[in-house]
């Protein structure tokens, strides 16, 4: 997933769309808005980002799972949790440097699934579909001709906590 921080206005449509699409329990969210202001007046630089699970290339939440509930899916390397295998030990939550997971009131660990049920049908994730500024782009990072790769080739970009060594699969255009 590629997100353009120059066009994101932080309206939180993506957050609400995700909560509605995925029946996210009240008080929780799988995606959220981060606003980062850097510098000092008058040269202040502000970045608004829609954040969620980074579906990392090296996901620390997967090897720590004692039951195999937390796994990398065959579909595009999406990181998922099998609810009926999860014992709620919370190892994956402490293993994630992005704090992207939480415990669902029913007892299992939950997080962004990239709306895998929609992706399976060839539709974009809910957050991408509703974005009023079209700042989010979903596609195949392995395909050099995909829209996401074209954007990455033409623009400067960064990922979150690169130094944590997880190789995030969400990239932010700056």
């Amino acid at each position: 997933m590629v997100i353009d921080t120059n066009t994101c206005v932080g309206c939180m449509d993506c957050v609400v769309a995700c909560q509605t699409e995925n029946n996210v329990p009240e008080g929780f969210c799988r995606d959220w808005i981060t606003t980062e202001a850097k510098g000092s007046f008058p040269t202040i630089d502000m970045e608004i980002r829609s954040e969620r699970c980074n579906h990392c290339e090296i996901p620390p939440c997967v090897p720590c799972c004692p039951t195999g509930a937390s796994h990398v899916s065959d579909i595009g390397g999406i990181v998922l949790v099998e609810h009926n295998k999860c014992i709620g030990c919370k190892a994956c939550i402490t293993a994630c440097p992005y704090d992207a997971r939480y415990i669902h009131p029913d007892g299992y660990a939950e997080k962004c699934t990239f709306c895998v049920h929609r992706v399976n049908e060839g539709i974009d994730p809910a957050c991408v579909s509703v974005c009023p500024t079209k700042c989010m782009h979903f596609g195949d990072l392995d395909d050099p001709n995909s829209e996401v790769n074209k954007l990455l080739n033409s623009r400067k970009h960064h990922s979150l906590l690169r130094e944590a060594g997880t190789k995030p699969n969400i990239l932010y255009l700056t």
Binding site: F28, C29, I33, T34, E36, A37, I93, D99, I103
Partner: peptide, 14 residues
Amino acid sequence: MNEITITRNNELID
């Protein structure tokens, strides 16, 4: 200055 604001408020996490 580096000020970060996050809208997330998940129980036990934030």
